[in-house]
Design a protein around this nucleic acid. Structure first.
Lengths: 119, 119
DNA sequence: TCAGGTAGGTACCTAAAAGTAACCAATGTT
DNA sequence: AACATTGGTTACTTTTAGGTACCTACCTGA
């Protein structure tokens, strides 16, 4: 991942070398409070502008949204397209790599769903 | 999940109600720095004592290990078996629910592996 | 009586994630 | 000249996760 947004990632003074662990790698890319929601809505809508994402992701702030989008872009999960217009227009969509998350996210959603029902 | 170990879970003063989101639910159960490793080694070894887990999970401290084990037990993922012996002997293993994590963890490992290779 | 072995627990601290509020830039409109 | 619009950024604060170091209980054997 992007190096500059590691620590979900491998917290603490002593890095124990979990950057090598594939599961931790996935966690580092899609983990956190907002990324699953962002990815979900991009999957549903295809393309969304910054302001649209802000409306559609419940409760997210401007700061968190732009920060998370930047990380997702750096990690190659989404594509950012800027139009040379005023007022600015910026569109976000999943990259091919981002679309490849689908089976994993489905597996997570499926297990989580079962867990919520039966516990 | 266990209520008393929520916030990977839904951080911050304003809970936006993501306890409803299945993906966040899964993240809450298996997320964090140590749980993937603990689950991995329990999957590999079947049954492990506290001290064995401590040796086998690289870098984990006593505190983090017992804390994470307690959360996993509360969430129904692992089973804790105490023997009435001195010195104490406590064994941990995956529950049926814990074993049901397999496809999800495999999907995460698989995506993470690909990501590490091609990025 | 005292050290060894096992499975914890506690108080305290640091670091990372997330939240709050305010600010900026560019231009078309009033 | 002021204002609205859009997509940000920045400084600061709060909340949560994780780390360090040390403590306990219990029985056995020396």
């Amino acid at each position: 991942m992007s190096e500059k947004n590691m620590p979900l990632r491998d917290a603490g003074p002593k890095n124990t070398g979990f950057g090598q662990c594939p599961v931790m790698t996935s966690l580092a890319v899609i983990g956190g409070k907002w990324k699953p929601a962002i990815l979900y809505f991009l999957q549903q809508h295809g393309v969304l502008r910054f302001g649209e994402l802000r409306k559609v992701v419940p409760g997210i702030t401007q700061k968190m949204l732009s920060q998370q989008l930047k990380e997702l872009e750096t990690d190659g999960i989404i594509v950012r397209r800027v139009y040379a217009e005023i007022p600015p227009r910026v569109e976000y969509r999943l990259s091919t790599l981002g679309e490849s998350l689908r089976p994993m996210l489905d597996a997570m959603a499926s297990w989580g769903m079962d867990y919520l029902r039966r516990g």
